[in-house]
Nucleic acid binder design. Sequence first.
DNA 1: TATTATTTTGAGATAGCTTATCAATTTCAA
DNA 2: TTGAAATTGATAAGCTATCTCAAAATAATA
Lengths: 140, 140
Amino acid sequence: HVKEMQALKEHLGKHQLKLTRQRELILNAFLRQEHITAEAMYHQLAKADPHLGLATIYRTLNLFCDAGLAQARHFGSQTKYDNVSHKGHHDHLICTGCEKIVEFENEEIERLQEEVATRNGFTIKTHRLELYGLCSRCRH
Amino acid sequence: HVKEMQALKEHLGKHQLKLTRQRELILNAFLRQEHITAEAMYHQLAKADPHLGLATIYRTLNLFCDAGLAQARHFGSQTKYDNVSHKGHHDHLICTGCEKIVEFENEEIERLQEEVATRNGFTIKTHRLELYGLCSRCRH
DNA sequence: TATTATTTTGAGATAGCTTATCAATTTCAA
DNA sequence: TTGAAATTGATAAGCTATCTCAAAATAATA
C-alpha cells in the first residue's frame, strides 16, 4: 500500500490538501476492499475510531476518486467505491439474485467501444459496462 | 402511438389495472421523448394538467417499465426513463461537456458480452453500457 | 343506466443517500 | 513554536423516490 499512499500524497501536494490521520485510516481500510459503500466503511471503521464521521468517509472516498485511486459506481440507489489503484479498468457482472459482483475485462469490447466513439466524433474518458443477470447458483 | 397504447392496454388487462386519463396523458408525452426524468415530465405536463402529481408520474413511468415500454437508467443521482418501445436495445455515448446523449447499438459488443457471461456462468437479463467523454464540439 | 367493488390519484409525509454548514481541531510551512 | 489554512465531526439540509390514505375515478355487473 506504499504506492497508493504515494499517489495520495502527490495528489494532496498538488492541491494544497493535508494528510490527516483519518485519511490514512480510510485509505488503509479502502485498499483492503474491492467494492465498498460509504455506509459499510463507516460501520467497519467504527471499531477503529468510534468518532469518525460519516461525512468524512464520503469526503475522503470522493477525494480518492479525484486522486484516481477509487471510482464511484451507482448501483441502484447506492454508490459503491471501487478500488482501481492496483489493477486496470474492469467491468462488472452483477447477479440480481444474490447481488454477487464478478469483475472482468475484455480488450475486444474496449476496442469496439473506441471504434463506436470515434465513429461518432467522441473522445472517451471513461465508461461503465454492467451486465445484469443470474449467476449459476441463483438460476436454480 | 397506437401500438404502444395497445401494449399498455394489454399489460393493464393482464394485471387488473385500469386505464386512466393520467396514464394516457403521460404515455403520449413520454412517447415524444427519447429520455426524460420524472421531474422534467412533471414540469412539462404542468401546463396540460396543473394537478397532476409527481408521485403519479413516478408510478406511471415505473408502470411503463413493467409493461416493457420504458427502461430506467441511473445517470449519477438521477433516473432517466428511456423510450424503448419503438426501437431495440441501445447503449449510450454521453458528452460530459454538454450532456448530449447519443444512442448506438453494436451487435459485436453484445455478442462478446454474452460470451463473457457464459464463461462466468451467468445468464444475462439486461445490461448497460455508457461511454463518457467529449463530443467533437466540446473538445475544442 | 345505476350500482358497487376495486384501483388510482393527489398532496404531503416519509425514507434513504449524499452534501452543506460551521465551530472546534488539526496540519504544516515559516 | 506560531499562525494561516485545511479538516473534522455532528447535525442540518437537500434531493430523489416511495409510501400513506382519504377522495375520486374506473370498469364490471345488475
